[in-house]
């Protein structure tokens, strides 16, 4: 049986790992390659690298970092940030990335999802969605939550799936950085609505939050950053706890 996945996310700026509380105050948490290697040793199932400033500054992605990670790390990893066209993705694939994550570029040009899936296979294409509640609705936001769109979150995710997304990385901007738990209600609603894997993101503060997200939303994977980077949650202990709670994980 396929396992629920634990995914540390390394937000990277200028070659260093950072994690912003609600994407604003950045703290330096170390060398991404070394962190990645440590996480793979601890039992992380997968890694995500997001260049959180890439979209805002139109910065091209981190080919050298991807190569350095691929040389040293023996688990899959996804790279996101600044991927706007097929050529960007092609460079990252050849540098050793297993998947690429697109966010704003997909909203601006939804056809990019089709193009990437056709060229590289849908398993290569993660569509990241930042969502924020706006009254009764959940709307897709861009540029690290700075810019609201008119897209309704569930409808956009369905469209992304139909266009060829292989996986959805859904971050609740209302929960991100709060350490108050994942947005399990929204995650369950989305998860019931799609037939591709869903990665839950935003709000992890303690181990119970991981139990809750898997039990309540049935998401395929849970992603977090600061709780792992600052050693507040240790992956081997987290996985043992999940297993004790009858959640299927790789130990």
């Amino acid at each position: 049986m396929v396992c629920k996945r634990i995914i540390p996310c390394l937000d990277v700026k200028d070659g260093r790992t950072v994690k912003g509380v609600n994407f604003v105050d950045l703290r330096d948490a170390g060398d991404p390659v070394e962190l990645a290697w440590q996480y793979s040793r601890q039992g992380a199932d997968e890694l995500v690298f997001l260049d959180i400033t890439a979209t805002h500054e139109r910065r091209k992605t981190m080919v050298e970092l991807v190569k350095a990670v691929a040389r040293q790390v023996n688990i899959p990893f996804t790279i996101g940030g600044g991927i706007n066209e097929l050529a960007d993705a092609d460079i990252l694939l050849n540098a050793g990335a297993d998947k690429i994550s697109i966010n704003s570029a997909a909203v601006r040009n939804p056809e990019l999802i089709n193009q990437l899936a056709d060229a590289f296979g849908k398993q290569f294409v993660v569509v990241a969605v930042d969502t924020k509640a706006a009254g009764e609705r959940n709307l897709v936001h861009l540029n690290g939550g700075r810019v609201a769109t008119h897209l309704e979150t569930a409808a956009w995710i369905k469209e992304a799936e139909e266009r060829g997304a292989g996986e959805i990385l859904l971050t609740s901007m209302d929960h991100d950085g709060t350490k108050s738990g994942f947005d399990n209600v929204l995650l369950k609603q989305i998860n019931d609505h799609i037939s591709i894997p869903l990665i839950a993101s935003g709000g992890a503060g303690n181990t119970q939050h991981f139990i809750d997200v898997f039990q309540q939303s049935d998401a395929d994977a849970a992603l977090a950053a600061s709780v792992f980077h600052y050693g507040e949650i240790l992956i081997p202990e987290l996985k043992q706890l999940l297993k004790n709670n009858h959640i299927n994980v790789r130990i």
Binding site: M1, V2, C3, Q123, D220
Partner: peptide, 8 residues
């Protein structure tokens, strides 16, 4: 879900 993605 398809693709079958992850550790099995």
């Amino acid at each position: 879900k398809v693709p079958h993605t992850g550790w099995n």
